[in-house]
């Protein structure tokens, strides 16, 4: 049996400390260790983007990172976007524009779009599509997701 390592990180403003197997992925640490199941796993291979989270300001695929690599970092998951019951403008926009169907891709889409809008507050539809081309959605055909991101961008600028 491999020796467990102690890791500690700040997720959505809370500090989580735990002993974990060296090979535990950050995604499993977040989902099982912290009970934050909003970070979804669609492929565990870095392809689908459903597990996208923000680590120290940059999007990361939580299935490709080990928990130990994230020791000491500051993380935002989808559960950290809203303030209490109050959804943030991007979440509101996804809901209002039918930017989700089954919703399984949605957390990853939201996290990718969060990082993107920070750097590109006034994006074109093509730029949004480019940004989201690493996140798979099997339900929507993407159009409503693009619309949601553009709508959020506009609201955030106002």
């Amino acid at each position: 049996m491999s020796d467990k390592l102690t890791v500690s990180m700040t997720i959505n403003g809370h500090t989580y400390t735990a002993d974990c197997e060296p090979r535990l992925t950050l995604a499993d640490f977040i989902r099982h260790g912290c009970g934050l199941t909003g970070t979804h796993l669609g492929c565990e291979q870095g392809v689908c983007g459903a597990c996208t989270i923000i680590v120290d300001g940059r999007t990361v695929r939580a299935c490709l990172v080990l928990a130990v690599q994230a020791d000491g970092s500051t993380i935002t998951t989808v559960e950290g976007l809203a303030r209490g019951d109050e959804l943030n403008p991007l979440q509101e926009a996804f809901w209002a524009n039918h930017g989700l169907q089954c919703g399984f891709c949605t957390p990853g889409m939201l996290m990718s779009a969060t990082e993107f809008l920070k750097a590109n507050p006034e994006p074109t539809a093509e730029e949004v599509r480019e940004c989201l081309s690493g996140n798979l959605c099997r339900c929507t055909g993407y159009d409503s997701i693009v619309k949601s991101v553009l709508d959020a961008a506009q609201k955030l600028r106002a």
Binding site: T37, G38, E79, L81, A82, L87, F94, W95, A96, H98
Partner: peptide
């Protein structure tokens, strides 16, 4: 109309089969 499961799905609260 806003879909009734929208809040839980955009907030990450929704419990999917794999989360149960």
């Amino acid at each position: 109309v806003p879909r009734s499961d929208g809040q839980t799905k955009v907030s990450g609260e929704a419990i999917y089969g794999v989360d149960y």
